[in-house]
C-alpha cells in the first residue's frame, strides 16, 4: 500500500465488508440527502430567480440547470461503472460489483433526462423536438449502452456471474465511448443541413455559472443517495442467508 496513506487503505478495506458498508452508509445517507436537498434548493433558486434571462434565448435557456448536469452525470456514472467493474473483476470485491450495477439504472435515468430536456429545449430553439445533433445522438447511443448493461444483468440468473459479464461490457463500452462520440461528431459535421443553425455559445456569465455548478454538485449527491439506496437493497438481497442480515431483522 505504498503511495496510499495507511488510514485510507484501512477505510477501503473496512468498506469492502458488507455489514460495515451497510451500517456506515445507513448513517451517511441522511446527511447526503440533506446536502442534496440544500444544494438543489440553492441551485434552483439561483438559476430560476437570481440569474438574468439570456439576451438571445430568453427564459428557455434555464433548462440547462437540469440538462447540463444530467449530461455530465450520464458520462461520469458510466466511467464510475467501468472503474467499479474493473475493481470487481480484478480483486473480486463484491461491493464493487454492487456499486457498479446500482449505478447503471441511475446513469440510464440521467441519460434519459438529458435527452428529454435537450428535446424540450430544442422545440423553441430549433423549432423541432429532435435534431440529429452530434451531442444528442451520442447521448442516445449512451442510453442504448446503459440499457444493454441493464438487460445483460437481468438476463443472467446467477448475480455474481452477471456482475462479471456486466463489468466486461462496461469496460468495453468505456473504451468505445470516445470512438463513438468522435465518429458521431465527424458524421454530423458532414451531414449538417442548413436548417440547423447552431447558436454560438457565448461565454457564460458568472451569475449563470454558479447555479449551474451548484446543480452539478447537487446531482452528484443525488447520484450518491440513489446509488447507495440501491446498493443497500441489492446487498441485503444477495446476503439474505448470512447471519448479519438475519440479525438486522430481529
Amino acid at each position: 500500500m505504498f503511495l496510499i496513506p495507511d488510514s485510507v487503505g484501512r477505510f477501503f478495506h473496512r468498506m469492502a465488508s458488507p455489514p460495515h458498508f451497510y451500517a456506515f452508509t445507513g448513517r451517511l445517507l441522511p446527511w447526503l440527502t440533506a446536502i442534496f436537498i440544500i444544494l438543489t434548493a440553492v441551485g434552483l433558486y439561483g438559476g430560476l430567480f437570481l440569474a438574468p434571462a439570456d439576451y438571445q434565448q430568453g427564459d428557455s435557456y434555464r433548462i440547462i440547470y437540469i440538462h447540463v448536469p444530467s449530461a455530465w452525470m450520464s458520462l461520469f456514472i458510466y466511467v464510475v461503472m467501468a472503474v467499479a467493474g474493473a475493481i470487481g473483476l480484478v480483486w473480486r470485491i463484491k461491493l464493487a460489483e454492487i456499486v457498479m450495477i446500482s449505478s447503471a439504472s441511475v446513469g440510464a435515468g440521467f441519460t434519459f433526462i438529458a435527452l428529454l430536456t435537450g428535446s424540450l429545449w430544442g422545440k423553441p430553439m430549433w423549432g423541432t423536438w429532435w435534431v440529429w445533433d452530434a451531442r444528442l445522438t451520442s447521448e442516445l447511443i449512451l442510453l442504448f449502452l446503459y440499457l444493454g448493461v441493464i438487460a445483460l444483468y437481468g438476463a443472467i440468473d446467477d448475480k455474481r456471474t452477471a456482475s462479471r459479464a456486466v463489468a466486461i461490457l462496461a469496460i468495453v463500452g468505456v473504451v468505445n465511448i470516445p470512438i463513438i462520440h468522435y465518429s458521431v461528431e465527424w458524421w454530423n459535421t458532414l451531414h449538417q443541413g442548413p436548417t440547423v443553425s447552431k447558436i454560438d455559445k457565448p461565454s457564460i456569465h458568472v451569475s449563470m455559472l454558479i447555479p449551474l455548478l451548484t446543480m452539478a454538485v447537487a446531482f452528484k449527491f443525488y447520484y450518491l443517495v440513489a446509488m447507495l439506496q440501491r446498493a443497500r437493497t441489492e446487498l441485503i438481497q444477495r446476503e439474505r442467508n448470512s447471519q448479519w442480515v438475519k440479525g438486522l431483522i430481529e
Binding site: 447511443i141 442504448f144 444493454g148 438487460a151 438476463a155 468505445n176 463513438i180 458524421w187
Partner: peptide
Amino acid sequence: GGMILALLVLPLYIPVLI
C-alpha cells in the same frame, strides 16, 4: 441471448457504419 446480443453489439458497430 439473441435480442440482448443485438442490444449489446449494434451500438458498438456505429463507428464502422459511419
